[in-house]
Write a protein that binds this DNA or RNA. Structure first.
Lengths: 324, 324
DNA sequence: CTGAAAGCGCTTACAG
DNA sequence: CTGAAAGCGCTTACAG
């Protein structure tokens, strides 16, 4: 009963007799033996670990319920397929690419999952360049047909939301979008513009605000929006938390929602249901986004699958803030 | 320039000339060389990785904003000290102890952080038994003086909250606590009982409800509470989400809050501020809990520090639900 | 100050 | 079906 035999039993090699297997397994159990994962990884040149690349600052990271929710989906699928998860612990200083490179070059992970996609994303370029397995939550800027990704149809979601606001009589619709380098921002702005165009409403750049995903952003822009000479009568916001900031501002200014201004947003966080003015919001199903992105990654690692996309359906929940 | 020399440069051995160091570093940079982490871990018998043990079901995991927030604190401190984070990906079947054992026996982690403590916690017993570095978010059931942990004074928080409700004229205070096996539940119930005792209010077991941390729990018990022959006029809930469930039920039943029944809860989630009835809630500062628990773990790993506790202050935010 | 050698604990052709 | 041997890529006494 050599070390080779034990190793073969662990990997369940078909060339070992059942009798030996049973014997070895019994002894392993008695001794509480577990193979050393590092030695294993070194010999096999794989780790069974997946790196999860979270957005840069851990500060803003968990403010948005999207990330924990998506992480939940990732955990779900990883656990089923028996992969471990290594979390990126980005400090402000390090950029994402640095962490990606570090995880890969030190052989800590077999694959990576990126939780957001940027326009001209250098992490994606790098990963494509070295042909390292990864998948994306979000839509890639280019080479869509060569990348595995899970996303909503954000263009369509924003389009529908805009159409809906027009259908309830709104004429002048402002938008607070997120970081302009994010693909999700681009897609949603595209959809918003398309809806305006189709309804012969001219797109005005001064109605488009961009900022970070926090309450203050909404609060700040809410004021600016209300103080415009030519006031908007509706507002689309890229995240509930930001929308809350705006709503808070409007309430402080005694603006009536949705009569003076209707508000619709994204993420359908629990907040949007329970807020003093329940918010119309798009449920993007983040758990499912995470789960499918993980599945795609596994597909990429185990079957060299590439260029597969999964579109997760969204749901618009109409509530008080648009008189829904 | 042998492999030993390179290795010594990487570990910044003092016995290498500055000249050689510079030369090696330059070449490493040119070649984009990174040492293989698995080989390193194998040779050095340590990984630079910390295992984060999250509550059993990933389902309930992220419903409560406590966990992502605490994780944020953990990430913060780990990143500063240059540790990687390995996430436990518990499926329903596996119990926590199994994962703890697996992480340790396969040498995947140098230390563990437990995100909750149970009464008679078998993971804690195991870790103590084999003398493996770990720290706890929460208070241990026993051997307090031998375990590193970060927690709030939950007994005092519940005590204060109860005293506060009594001070606004409430006489019959019910409580919805969490899982009865959790230390946090025990502590809060203790504080609640102490406040009653001091005010000559008899503790009644039928006013104490226990359940899981979700909205349904609150909704269900809200009904039961309102249908009691001898109705409570106040309710303490162990989590905002559960409290919302109860509030929702009370609203459905046309019960006036806080006049008919006052509601106070824990976690001060963003929800509690923005709800249609803003909730009085205790901010337990989860980010800081995570950060300090991680610091304690590092202390334990690097300096063999043990039995150190850090108590994180809480803050009670008084809002509409108690007429605050 | 630096190199040759052994060792960390596995896996996997190779041989039988 | 099973064992002896080499190799995975590092680190670290040991020797010089």
């Amino acid at each position: 009963m050599s070390t080779s035999t034990v190793s073969r039993v662990i990997s369940n090699s078909p060339r070992i007799s059942q009798k030996t297997k049973d014997k070895v397994l019994k002894v392993m159990d008695e001794l509480g033996y577990y193979p050393n994962a590092n030695a294993r990884s070194l010999a096999m040149n794989k780790t069974g670990t997946i790196g999860v690349i979270m957005p840069t600052t851990s500060e803003e990271l968990f403010l948005n319920p999207f990330f924990p929710e998506a992480l939940r989906g990732i955990v779900k699928s990883a656990s089923k397929a028996n992969y471990d998860l290594l979390l990126s612990t980005n400090t402000e200083k390090q950029d994402e690419l640095k962490i990606v490179k570090n995880f890969i070059r030190t052989s800590k992970v077999d694959g990576l999952i990126l939780m957001s996609s940027k326009i001209e994303d250098e992490s994606i370029s790098y990963l494509r360049g070295i042909n390292f397995p990864f998948s994306l939550i979000g839509t890639p800027y280019n080479f869509e047909d060569q990348i595995n990704y899970a996303d909503n149809d954000n263009e369509m979601a924003a389009y529908e939301l805009t159409i809906y606001l027009i259908s309830i009589g709104k004429k002048r619709i402002a938008m607070i979008a997120g970081d302009k380098n994010l693909m999700v921002t681009k897609k949603r702005v595209d959809g918003y513009k398309r809806a305006l165009l189709e309804n012969n409403i001219k797109f005005e750049n001064e109605l488009l605000y961009k900022g970070s995903f926090d309450e203050e952003t909404g609060y700040k822009y809410g004021k600016q929006i209300w103080e415009m000479k030519n006031r908007p009568d509706a507002l689309i916001v890229t995240d509930d938390l930001v929308a809350f900031g705006a709503v808070k501002q409007f309430q402080a200014l005694n603006v009536s929602i949705p009569d003076d201004i209707a508000v619709a947003s994204f993420n359908n966080s629990i907040l949007s249901r329970y807020s003093n003015i329940p918010l119309t919001s798009v449920d993007i199903n983040p758990v499912e986004l995470g789960r499918q992105a993980m599945n795609l990654l596994i597909d990429s690692m185990e079957n060299d699958q590439k260029g597969k996309k999964i579109i997760i359906p969204y749901t618009i929940h109409r509530r008080k803030s648009t008189d829904g």
